[in-house]
Design a protein around this nucleic acid. Structure first.
Lengths: 418, 418
DNA sequence: ACGAATATGTTCTGCCGCACAACTTAGCAT
DNA sequence: ATGCTAAGTTGTGCGGCAGAACATATTCGT
């Protein structure tokens, strides 16, 4: 009997991996939770005091990934515990959020602090592939120049409004940029090679991912979804996409294309979508749908926020439009809730504005039909990171390799570039 | 800064868990792949020869979970490798598939062999909750009586056409059985307590799960989805449900209710569904929809297979009906493919018959719209286990605890019941 | 103000799990 | 037969974590 692959994790665990796992756990903890007492780490991990001490010392002295400080504020009896602090300045990543109208770049330190930002507007005629790659590279150079003398760039992540192949950042389809089948990850890797000599680029290149997927990641790491293992993040930026986390892990799918909720058909009698189908969710609740319903022509400068504002101001047409949209929002969200049974559905991008005004409508419409069971514990919430969720997600993506194998990555980096 | 849960796996790994993991890996391998040479295990796991030897010896002598045999057929030079064989007779589970019209029970041995089966018809007036619990218990008793003297029952799993709470097998909603909010897992635990003295029931009770979820599990373990990490299994038995596996792991959702694809709204202008919504997928492609489209009244004895047969025989009405159904099938499957980007969509239950005849229609309709990207590598395939997938899945569910911690479970069982 | 209580860091020892090397064994090939 | 090959077996060593004993820093009680 042939047996291709019996189990996701086919390989046996060895002691070396045990250490790596525990180091990773520790570093990830302080990266996500910020400065943490050793005592807390001991309690949370279940590892022995002495082991935590050894692990922290390893992270601190071998790679300088963390430092140990005496706590300022003291509470309770007993010897005060050292605080393990991530070395924010020393280990950094570059994060980018490529949007239709701009490129946002940031230097993010270990622990998630944004150390500097840079926004480059993208004029409609500059969305050309090569132009975007070049602009990203020059932005990267400016960010890299601001790196301190001690600082190391341990990765580059970029969020794009595109269907992206997970393995290599190849952009399959990005209607809002007008791209199709473009080797974005590869091109960026080449363009950044001389900007970042001796960085991790040789290993893994620039990490490109879908903006909604990264939004979900960011909300789980630093937003409303902290501590939640099953969430759906909806990104409304012209199109609609979903980033889904189930069982604590991002849903990727076979090629990395999972979460294309925008092209879920909800209304077979609806408008034809760019993708060729009829009544995709995106055509019913996307930016253009909202504008059209409110009597505007997409591109005339009106935004979803404007519509929301005029609805709040009492405009009947705007109210009607949002009511219509919320009807379809409820259908789509209901479907997603039935399929994923999440704890949270996070409304990001322009959907955030819609939720603010229409939450009651959406909830009551969802309650009118469908399985109540999966809906009883779900909460619809606005994104906590606002417009920056994809950017933060890109940073998390870029940090992922370091967090997965702290000493391995840090030392190999030290060997390469000092 | 408060920090509820930083990471799915917050706990540190200790050496004990390392051993447990590797033992689990080995046992799971032979359980799924059947008798395997030690040399193969060495190669697959990456562990050292001596380690594999020690692990196998541990599984064999400490708990009798496997035995080591000399291989019969010899090929190639060198000393022949021992074959690690799962102790099928010694470790068994009870698996049940509760359906609308019958209860199927089976004794399944380690390695997945069905050792005996028992089918109890369920008359329409016997679907009463207490009746079903009692019938299951008597079936269980018959199966237990057939256990050999050496045999140990290490778990009980049951598949139900219901929305089931993951934690305790509480049935929230089972329209086809006419149940709502019933403590099925608990009741079965009580009913089976004296049938299975000294079994694992005290620990975890009877494991109840949704039939589609278990179908997916079974197809991944022993069916067409072997070696695939991203699959959608569709179960068509009166209603429509989906069992979804992503990244190699079953999609559970927060309460364990994920995968309710039958109540995904695909046609807002469609019929009203039992759940209260309009145009649920189930109302368009479920058994009743097929029958009605073909001009039959549900309950008149006609089956989906009959319709498929008459369509094959040339009946225009049947052809038209299936054409209509396949249109909605394509919409729903397209949505699922967009959301999950699976490698396989497995058609189980009555959908199997539909796929056999309508595959071309479904595929071409899916191709007409929607994102091509996520569809380019997906295959629509019939279930390989046919009507038994849920039953096999129930067995896998029941074995899960043993496979996760072989020695722990086996020894605690030995301590309890000899 | 001083010692007791408390909680934590530190050090040392021990156990456990795996790798590796050296040796042994079983079958195959010439 | 004899060597070749590939695997099992055995003993040693290393790495990783736990636990105990001790050291240390802070708070609390009087």
């Amino acid at each position: 009997m042939r047996f291709p692959r019996p189990h996701p994790n086919i390989s046996g665990i060895k002691q070396e991996e045990l250490r790596r796992h525990n180091l990773s756990l520790l570093l990830r903890y302080v990266h996500l939770a910020g400065p943490t007492q050793r005592a807390t780490l001991t309690a949370q991990t279940g590892l022995n005091r002495s082991t935590i001490g050894a692990l922290a010392a390893d992270l601190a002295s071998t790679a300088g990934l963390v430092r140990e400080e005496s706590p300022e504020v003291r509470s309770g009896a007993g010897r005060p515990s050292f605080v393990v602090v991530p070395e924010t300045e020393r280990y950094q990543v570059l994060a980018f959020d490529l949007r239709v109208d701009r490129i946002v770049g940031a230097r993010v330190g270990l622990g998630g602090t944004v150390l500097s930002r840079d926004v480059v507007p993208l004029l409609p005629d500059c969305r050309d592939f090569d132009e975007v790659v070049k602009l990203t590279a020059t932005t990267a150079r400016r960010l890299v120049d601001a790196l301190g003398p001690q600082a190391r760039c341990v990765g580059v992540g970029i969020a794009t409004p595109a269907v992206v192949r997970g393995s290599d950042g190849f952009v399959r389809f990005a209607p809002n940029l007008g791209w199709e089948e473009r080797p974005f990850g590869e091109a960026l890797g080449v363009a950044l090679a001389d900007v970042l000599p001796g960085s991790m680029l040789d290993d893994a290149g620039v990490l490109v991912a879908n903006d909604a997927d990264l939004g979900a990641l960011a909300e789980q790491a630093r937003g409303v979804a902290r501590g939640h293992d099953d969430i759906v993040y909806l990104s409304g930026n012209v199109g609609v996409g979903a980033g889904i986390i189930c069982g604590g892990r991002p849903l990727r799918g076979h090629g990395g294309y999972a979460g294309e909720a925008g092209h879920m058909v909800v209304n077979p009698a609806g408008q034809r979508c760019r993708c060729g189908a009829r009544g995709c969710w995106e055509t019913e609740v996307g930016t253009d749908a909202v504008l059209r319903a409110a009597g505007h022509e997409p591109g005339d400068g009106t935004t979803v926020q404007d519509i929301v504002a005029s609805a709040q101001a009492g405009s009947p047409r705007a109210r009607w439009a949002l009511d219509e949209v919320s009807r379809w929002l409820a259908v789509g969200v209901g479907n997603l809730v039935n399929l994923f049974n999440p704890e949270l559905v996070i409304f990001g991008g322009e959907l955030r504005d819609l939720l603010a005004l229409m939450e009651h409508d959406i909830v009551s419409r969802m309650g009118a039909g469908g399985l109540t069971v999966s809906r009883e514990h779900v909460a619809l919430v606005p994104s906590a990171l606002g417009g920056d969720s994809a950017l933060f997600g890109a940073a998390e993506l870029a940090f992922a390799r370091l967090l997965d194998d702290p000493l391995g990555v840090a030392t190999s980096l030290a060997a390469m570039g000092g």
